[in-house]
């Protein structure tokens, strides 16, 4: 599970470099997110723009990560691809997360 993180003042941007978060990778995703979010920050933004597919195990793992961060540290999502957005919408999890269409311009890296 290839995740990388960049800290921008109080915002930790975590980029998922895998094209799916599914039942074969959900546990690794959750563990890797736990490690990577040990870097202190007020907010965490998960960039899912490389993730073409997420199943209910992957969704459960994203929810688990939000709970792991606790009530005072927000998990925001960015760059949901169409099928991933559909899973969030159908399960109404889109009402729970702050979802950004794309990463804010100043946080996007060239390449």
């Amino acid at each position: 599970m290839n995740l990388t993180a960049n800290l921008h003042t109080d915002l930790l941007v975590v980029t998922c470099h895998e094209n799916r978060i599914d039942s074969a990778s959900a546990i690794q995703f959750k563990e890797r997110m736990r490690d990577i979010t040990e870097t202190p920050s007020a907010r965490v933004m998960l960039d899912l723009s490389n993730v073409a597919f997420l199943d209910s195990s992957g969704l459960g793992a994203v929810v688990a990560v939000m709970k792991l961060l606790g009530p005072d540290r927000k998990l925001e999502l960015a760059g949901l691809t169409p099928t991933v957005a559909k899973v969030f919408r159908l399960t109404r999890m889109d009402t729970v997360f702050t979802i950004h269409a794309t990463l804010p311009d100043n946080l996007r890296k060239a390449g």
Binding site: S56, A61, V63, M66, K67, V87, L90, T91, T95, V96
Partner: peptide, 24 residues
Amino acid sequence: HLPEIDQFANLPEGGFGWYLIRTL
């Protein structure tokens, strides 16, 4: 059935599979 989604309560981490199948 879709599990209850309440962001102030304990959010479900599973139980979505059959809801998705039946919906789609």
